[in-house]
Nucleic acid binder design. Structure first.
Lengths: 215, 215
DNA sequence: CTGCGTATACTCGCCTACGAGTAAACGTGG
DNA sequence: CCACGTTTACTCGTAGGCGAGTATACGCAG
C-alpha cells in the first residue's frame, strides 16, 4: 500500500481532479485551479505545471486529444483524463484521507532548535507569532463566512480545517507563553544561565555528547 | 525580511545547530542528529546530507578544519561552524518561531479533493484515519512520558506541540464524522446524488465552469 | 581464523522542481 | 490609433534533492 505515485507532485492530483470534468489545455487547468483557490490548499508552484502534465501523459494518466491552433497562437494541446488517471486520482485521494502522515511543520523545526536562543529572546518571538496568527485567524474566519454564501459546505471543509488548526496552534503558543512569562516553565533558570554563560549543567552536557562515536 | 536562505533545506539548520557544539565530520552530524530524533522534527533525508554540507561550506557557513585520515579509511573532513554560520542559524530559528507560514498538509489537500469520492466512501476513510491518529497519539503520549524522565522540558516542546496538533486534528475529524454519520452535514443529499448519477445541481455546475476562458 | 552480517562512511547520477524569461495578443487611456 | 500595461501561454536552464549503490571495517559465531 501507499506505493510510489508515478507523478508524486500534489499538483498532479489537482490537475487530475480538474481535468476529470472536461478536457482542457494546461493553461486552462491553471486558471481553473487558481479561481478555486486550490493553490491555498496545496503547495502548488505554477512553474511545475507543464512538467507535471507531461509526466502525467507519459504515465498514461492523461492523453492529448487535440492540438488545435487558433490563429497565430502556438498550438495548445488539449488533454483528457484516462481511466487509469481517474483511478489514480481516486486512489490518491483515499490515501490522503485515510493515512495520517507525519509531516513536521517549519514551526516544529523551529521549536526543536529553539534552545539555541535564550528564553528572553524566544518569548517576544512567540508573542509576535501569536499576533500574526490571530490576524490570520480573523482573516480566515471572515473569508470563510463570505464564501459560505456562495459555496456548499462540501467545498469549504479544507478551509474550515485549516482554520481549526491555526486556532489550535494559537492556543498552544498562548499556553507556552504563559509558562514562559509566568516563570513556571521547568528549567527556565538553567536555560537562562546556560545561554548567558555558555555553561551547561552536567546532564545537558551528557546530552550534547550523545551519538558521538566512542573513538 | 525572510530573505532567501543560501541553503534552504532544513537539514542545513539541523546541521548548523549540531556543529555549533563542536567540530564534526558529516557522518557524525548524522549520527548525533539521529540519536536526538531530529529526523522526527524535520523532513530530513539523509541522502541530502553531503550535498547540504558542501553547500554550507560553499556559502561560508561551515569551514573544513581537518582532513585527518585514520588508517586505511578515506579521509574524513571535519567541519567547524563560522561566525556567519552561527548568525544564519540564529536568524533562521528566529524566523521559524516568529512567522506563521501557511504550509498546507497532505490531509488538507485530500479534503480539498474529497468531493471526487462519494460520502459513503469518505466516512469510512475518515474513521480509519481517526483510529490511526488515536494510536499515534497514544504512542506519542507514552514516548513523551518516558522522555520526560531523562530530558529537560526545553528539549521536549516540539514533541508536545506535535502531540497537541494531532489531538486537535483528531478532534476535528471526529466532529466532521459526527456530521456525516448523523446526516447533519449540509448538502449531504446533493453530494450523494451527484456522485451516484453524475448530475450536478445548477449552482455546482456553475462552479465547475469558473475560470473557464470566455472563448 | 574465517566467513558473514551489520555499522560506518560515503559517492553517484538521475530526475524533478521551479524560477525566470519570452513573446504574442488583448484592452484601454490618452 | 498607438503606446503601454496586463493577461495569456508557454519554454528553458539548472540547482539540488534524494534514492540506490558501494566499499571498508568491525564484531562474533562456529
Amino acid at each position: 500500500m501507499a506505493r510510489r505515485r508515478p507523478v508524486s507532485n500534489l499538483l498532479a492530483l489537482a490537475v487530475l481532479t480538474v481535468v476529470v470534468q472536461r478536457p482542457m489545455h494546461p493553461y486552462e487547468m491553471a486558471s481553473v485551479l487558481r479561481s478555486r483557490g486550490k493553490d491555498q490548499d496545496m503547495p502548488i508552484k505554477w512553474g511545475s505545471l507543464y512538467t507535471v502534465v507531461r509526466n502525467l501523459e507519459k504515465h498514461g494518466l492523461l492523453e492529448a486529444v487535440e492540438s488545435g491552433r487558433q490563429g497565430a497562437r502556438p498550438e495548445r494541446t488539449v488533454y483528457r483524463i484516462t481511466d487509469a488517471g481517474r483511478r489514480e486520482a481516486d486512489d490518491w485521494t483515499r490515501e490522503l484521507l485515510r493515512e495520517p502522515r507525519r509531516e513536521p511543520s517549519a514551526f516544529e523545526a523551529g521549536l526543536s532548535v529553539m534552545a539555541g536562543l535564550g528564553p528572553d529572546e524566544v518569548a517576544p518571538l512567540l508573542r509576535r507569532r501569536l499576533e500574526l496568527l490571530e490576524e490570520q485567524i480573523e482573516a480566515g474566519r471572515a473569508a470563510l463566512e463570505e464564501e459560505r454564501a456562495e459555496l456548499p459546505r462540501l467545498f469549504l471543509v479544507e478551509s474550515e480545517y485549516a482554520l481549526a488548526m491555526r486556532r489550535a496552534q494559537a492556543g498552544w503558543v498562548r499556553s507556552l507563553l504563559a509558562e514562559l512569562d509566568g516563570g513556571t516553565f521547568p528549567g527556565l533558570a538553567e536555560w537562562q544561565a546556560h545561554h548567558r554563560t555558555g555553561e551547561m549543567s552536567p546532564d545537558v552536557a551528557d546530552l550534547a555528547n550523545r551519538g558521538r562515536p566512542a573513538d
